[in-house]
Design a protein around this nucleic acid. Structure first.
Lengths: 334, 334
DNA sequence: CGACGGAGTTTGAACGATCAAAACGAGGAG
DNA sequence: CTCCTCGTTTTGATCGTTCAAACTCCGTCG
């Protein structure tokens, strides 16, 4: 109820001395409008500060210019800030392209598919952005089956039926490879890896980068540790390693996340033993502690995600799938 | 385009043998419909899985059932997770009430008011949720002037013209008071406070809680430190304090944020001097390091914010402003 | 010279809901 | 028996846009 005399197509048309449709054409299909008429209409639009009503447009075209994103439960929170930054960049990119981001929550992936259905019916969302995809994800299957446009932040890990879905991801292996190469170049002989339990696609990918870099350098691989993504668990594990390994102890450690890196860092402070730690995700915690970390190009990822989704939405064909290179941020502990 | 034969009021009406309007009445003004008819209609609605189109409803009623929220630039990131959790709870609460949360970004507060105008015209947002309000905030003034409903997470700090705006906030002073009392009860004699530079409303509020608790206990206040909200700066400051103070050194420290607490904690690890640190916001970092911290009831705050905004939107009158009590989470360093 | 074609523009009908007012039927009062 | 009222249900108009088809010029071609 802010403005009683809101400008509409008709008011603009009247002012410009043309019909509704012509005004509409100026906005949507300018090539159909004569240059002189177009100028007159544009002037009227500007004068009345006319902006089309998305509601009316949506009703007619069945497109809402809105994208849905499920907000995950906060989780660990250290790594959580990754999604936070992604969300920010995503909103910015979508906004620049004339789209809005609408949030929703769901307790789990299955509930999320129900939410899709509801949102599609009520809000006519044009598409969805999925995060944290994993093997056997019920969400991509549902969306594909119902022919709903979407893009995933995360590769389609299923070897089957990744039927040309658009996706964006960051090359985790390349990140840990760069981290490992950096450590080897700095003179470290034995580098260890601290990752998550086997079976997590993202985790396995990051471990692979370390393995490859060690092998490529012809170095002897240090121990390969596994811990759930928890600071204390990681600290205990690393402390045990450092105490028991003696002279064989690695002098550098590549971690699959900053949570793990924070744990390892705590262990070095406690034991006083030297261990250069590299984390993953370049969270504020890593920055605060002066830990090197692999930074995901989140703004770029968000931009690519929006681009892919819009390509699909607006009927353009484009290469599907985009793997971005992360960047190692080198710091010295302070 | 998911379902060609989408259910509408008309299809439901036909199935139930009534008119469109009756179906609409069943949903919006049930008291006007006969009980037997209502049952029949409801059955048809369920059978067709009918959900009203927000676009059509919005076009007619000029209400969108959507709330806008500006996503702040990530900032520090340690404390950033606070807004993240608030956002999650807000989405959940809004969703439960049949509202959606639409995001947008803006580089600064002034640009944010421009975004309001645009969003109101195009998307017909019903209201806004503001975070991080401060003195002389141009946003609340703009919204009030244009008669746009909103609620702030943060008190109206301006003493003037806080014209009964609805707001929700957490009692920071109560949080630091509880923290200080906890420390005093644990036997600490000299407790210090590490806050932000004077002039920040939130910071001053938190400091006040510490001062009051110390005074109430008749204890001698320890030093009052000021640092920008940065881990390294805080660590340096606390290290200096511990080294220089000698026997007078405080044994406990109340901090205005977990960033500061993290810095102080690092300082104790380095110097080896004992200092019990309490943080603020109960971020994952505090949990990871085993630091006590004051937890904001974010879910409750989000619920209260939605409630206040909806009271306004749906014409109910209710008390404006709600101050929530935080909760001290006590941990022992691990 | 009339039919043809195409660029530019207009008209009427939809999209799916709600509002306002009218219509309906049954029951009670005069 | 008629009129009125009240509770319930229906009808027509409307929100602001886009689609599809029609219309108007005007130049060209057979």
């Amino acid at each position: 109820m802010p403005d009683p005399g809101r400008a509409t197509l008709s008011t603009v048309a009247r002012a410009a001395g043309v019909s509704r449709q012509t005004v509409s054409n100026v906005l949507n299909t300018p090539e159909r409008v004569g240059p002189e008429t177009a100028a007159r209409v544009r002037a009227a639009i500007a004068a009345q500060r006319y902006v089309p009503s998305t509601a009316a447009r949506q009703l007619r075209t069945r497109r809402s210019s809105a994208l849905g994103l499920r907000l995950q439960p906060a989780g660990d929170g250290i790594n959580g800030s990754v999604l936070d930054r992604f969300l920010h960049a995503l909103t910015e990119q979508a906004q620049a392209a004339g789209y809005r981001v609408v949030l929703f929550t769901a307790p789990d992936d299955t509930a999320e598919t129900l939410a899709y259905e509801h949102l599609l019916r009520t809000a006519d969302l044009d598409g969805f952005v999925l995060t944290s995809t994993h093997q056997g994800d019920p969400r991509t299957a549902w969306l594909t089956e119902h022919d709903v446009p979407f893009v995933t932040f995360g590769r389609p890990w299923d070897t089957v039926d990744d039927a040309g879905q658009p996706w964006v991801d960051v090359d985790g292996a390349a990140g840990t490879r760069a981290a490992t190469e950096h450590l080897l170049a700095a003179g470290h002989r034995r580098t260890a890896f601290l990752g998550w339990p086997d079976g997590s696609e993202v985790g396995d990918d990051r471990r692979r980068g370390w393995e490859e870099a060690v092998a490529a350098a012809g170095a002897e691989p240090g121990p390969r540790l596994q811990s759930v993504d928890d600071v204390r668990a990681a600290r205990a594990l690393v402390t045990d390693l450092l105490r028991d390994a003696g002279d064989d102890a690695p002098t550098a450690l590549v971690c699959a996340s900053d949570s793990l890196a924070l744990g390892a860092h705590g262990s070095t402070l406690r034991t006083g033993l030297p261990l250069e730690v590299v984390g993953f995700d370049d969270t504020p915690v890593a920055a605060a502690l002066g830990l090197s970390s692999v930074a995901q190009p989140l703004a770029e990822a968000a931009a690519a995600a929006v681009e892919q989704l819009l390509d699909r939405l607006e009927g353009r064909t484009a290469p599907r799938g985009r793997l971005l290179a992360p960047r190692l941020v080198v710091r010295r502990p302070t």
